[in-house]
């Protein structure tokens, strides 16, 4: 039996918190982004879309940050999803050392980004880092790289770290998706003479649309607003080579006191996330 008053009362605190701390602050940022707000003194005057126009037309670092954010999203998700699927299939097939395999891929998921950042910064260190040291021990010194300290490789390094951190998550979701495929369908395929390969290619993988959609949505949402790992490993550098929108927003707001520009970047990130979230929510409601 529905109890509308109680339900409403219990929902009020949550709704209030979301309205105040998410939507009103986002709205406030949107408003601040239309002001000429420089320095700690105050808002200045209304400038309309001037800050946005300047960001997109005159600020090469913003454009670099936007491109890097998109590159990170595409590359990291583009690798994580197939890797997660392959891992889940291997787990489903019952490979030898299944427990160890699962542990190796799931452990990174439990690490905080601060721990991951410290660990990878240490592993990628050009002279004393584990990766280059190992290569030298194996007489493969010619393969050693500057990794995060080179402007041509810093983004690659970040992509590797993010794939490592999130492939376990993708594996977990796909494994749940594969386990959820009805046994009758698989049995029917077997009766029809489908090979192991055909079973996965023609039946199980096509049934993974919802897990794929979920992983894609969550990773996209995350990758558009990454900050911590990038900040703690490269700080957006060397130069501006690994600058992403969130690090540039922090830098321009707090190091340079350009608060309206910082708010504009934040609002661009909000719009980008909304462009992904709204269709997803609409589609899920439809289903």
């Amino acid at each position: 039996m529905k109890k509308p008053i109680q339900i409403t009362l219990f929902l009020i605190p949550a709704i209030l918190l979301v309205l105040i701390f998410i939507y009103s602050f986002a709205g406030w940022s949107g408003w601040a982004s239309t002001m000429s707000w420089e320095g700690l003194g105050g808002f200045g005057h209304f400038t309309g879309l001037k800050n946005y126009i300047e960001l997109f037309t005159q600020d090469s670092v913003f454009r670099k940050g936007l491109l890097n954010t998109l590159l990170l999203s595409v590359a990291f998700i583009g690798i994580t999803i197939p890797l997660g699927l392959i891992n889940a299939i291997l787990l489903d097939m019952g490979i030898k050392g299944k427990k160890l395999f699962r542990l190796i891929f799931l452990i990174p998921l439990s690490f905080s980004f601060v721990v991951s950042a410290a660990m990878w910064a240490w592993m990628f260190a050009p002279k004393t880092g584990t990766i280059n040291s190992l290569l030298r021990v194996l007489n493969l010194g010619f393969f050693t790289q500057p990794w995060l300290t080179s402007s041509s490789q810093s983004m690659l390094g970040l992509i590797i770290i993010y794939v490592w951190q999130f492939s376990g998550f993708a594996t977990l979701v796909y494994f749940a998706g594969i386990s959820g495929v009805k046994q009758e369908i698989i049995e029917a395929a077997k009766v029809d003479g489908a090979s192991q390969f055909q079973k996965y290619l023609r039946i199980i993988i096509p049934l993974q649309k919802i897990p794929t959609f979920t992983i894609l949505f969550l990773l996209l949402m995350y990758s558009l607003r990454v900050f911590d790992l990038v900040w703690l490993t490269t700080g957006g550098g060397p130069g501006y080579s690994s600058e992403i929108l969130a690090t540039y927003m922090w830098r321009i707001t707090f190091n340079r006191n350009l608060f309206a520009d910082g708010a504009s970047i934040g609002f661009v990130m909000f719009i980008m996330s909304a462009l992904i979230a709204v269709p997803f929510v609409v589609k899920m409601r439809g289903k």
Partner: peptide
């Protein structure tokens, strides 16, 4: 101004490479 170290840190980081 406080922006100096941020802006020129980046500029010199590129220059060193």
């Amino acid at each position: 101004p406080s922006a100096w170290l941020d802006v020129f840190g980046r500029m010199f980081s590129n220059y060193f490479e």
